[in-house]
Write a protein that binds this DNA or RNA. Structure first.
Lengths: 210, 210
DNA sequence: CCTTGATATGACTCTGGGGTAAGTTACCAC
DNA sequence: GTGGTAACTTACCCCAGAGTCATATCAAGG
């Protein structure tokens, strides 16, 4: 055709699976850094060097893409938590080990954290299911340690346990979020800081040799 | 005129100050319950039984209205915190007293809480200034108690103190938010729950007679 | 009465951003 | 070469929701 109305169309030799992975990587970063609501599909397309319809072609909708991003992040974070949980430590030592693992996992891609806790995440069913699953898998670990703490103090009220679990979950989140807001701090240094903070509240704790 | 093209126009005998207060009340509730981003000016107008332009006439913009709402809420919450702070208690007892006061203030209008901590609040200068002021006034109280706790454990690292303050602030927020999510629990019952939770972590605490 | 200012609204405009229709290009199998 | 298909884009539609304009009604003062 003499009239090249769409000079950039046509395949560039990138297989669908590869393109999907590339889009996913870019989207995770943008969604994580700016939040779901403040990130437009056009932004992602531009950052990935492709056009908007390709994203819709591969992921269906903005929500669809987001759900895959959250799934991706949740899998990484859950795997790390389950890994440290399997290491056999208990009580506060386990908390420290878990935090330490989280810092190390997040260091190369800190935006994953905010992805999972994005307050502007859509009420979309797929996304909510992924988040609910994540929540459920994480929950048990927290409830364990917290329940133990309360029983030690002679308290086995289940509602108290639930409230305390919410508190613990948010302490965990706060420590990670605080660390993310202080990028100069290494994971190791932050872990030590956590140990000092716990010690101030609970007294000295015996850590596993690592 | 035979052609009554705008049958509902014209004053209804409500003075500007009264209308502003009425709009403010409705807006606080809607913004607080659904968040800034999910609440449209049309929603507020409808809930207040007036038309959209009147809101723009009185408040200039959606952000302008929101800033006034946040100011309103922040004043109420700050006043309550400063009131309990002036009561003379210290340490954990003060934490309990402050929480108790907060539960009582929020009982008739729980939405005020989420208004101040809305993650979808606009980056608008006026709003941010109000929030920053609120933050600053609250901050000192937390830093005080937290600093004391750390010093007692032989720790006076200022960065540790800052991190611990962030943790404490979020524990406070979590307890209030948890309570708001359990509307059947009375302020008194929730205060007692907090006492039990603190006791489990810190051991028994001596409360002021009240 | 009749002007003036405050209170009020119906019916617009405009923009950002999600989503789509329809076509274009390249590669591969035969 | 010539279909068929997968990869890709341009240019568009469309709507919710912020914000505005021109006008209408009322109450009070002269």
């Amino acid at each position: 055709m003499a009239t090249r109305t769409r000079p950039n169309a046509g395949t560039k030799g990138v297989a669908r699976a590869d393109r999907e992975e590339q889009i996913l990587t870019v989207a995770c970063r943008l969604f994580g850094e700016s939040g779901f609501a403040s990130t437009s599909v056009a932004d992602i397309a531009e950052a990935a060097g492709i056009s908007k319809p390709l994203i819709y072609n591969y992921f269906g909708s903005k929500e669809g893409l987001y759900a895959v991003c959250v799934q991706h992040a949740a899998e990484i974070l859950t795997a790390e938590i389950e890994r440290t949980a399997a290491s056999g430590t208990v009580g506060l030592a386990r908390a420290v080990v878990t935090l330490d693992g989280m810092f190390r996992v997040l260091e190369p891609q800190p935006w994953l954290w905010h992805l999972v806790f994005d307050p502007t995440a859509p009420p979309d069913a797929a996304t909510q299911k992924v988040l609910a699953d994540y929540e459920r898998r994480i929950l048990d670990f927290g409830t364990e340690g917290v329940g133990e703490l309360l029983r030690l103090a002679g308290n086995d009220d289940p509602t108290d346990t639930e409230a305390m679990r919410a508190v613990w979950e948010n302490v965990f989140r706060t420590l990670v979020t605080w660390w993310l807001a202080h990028p100069d701090e290494s994971p190791a240094a932050m872990t030590e800081r956590c140990v000092r903070l716990f010690a101030a509240v609970f007294g000295e704790i015996d850590l596993p040799t690592s």
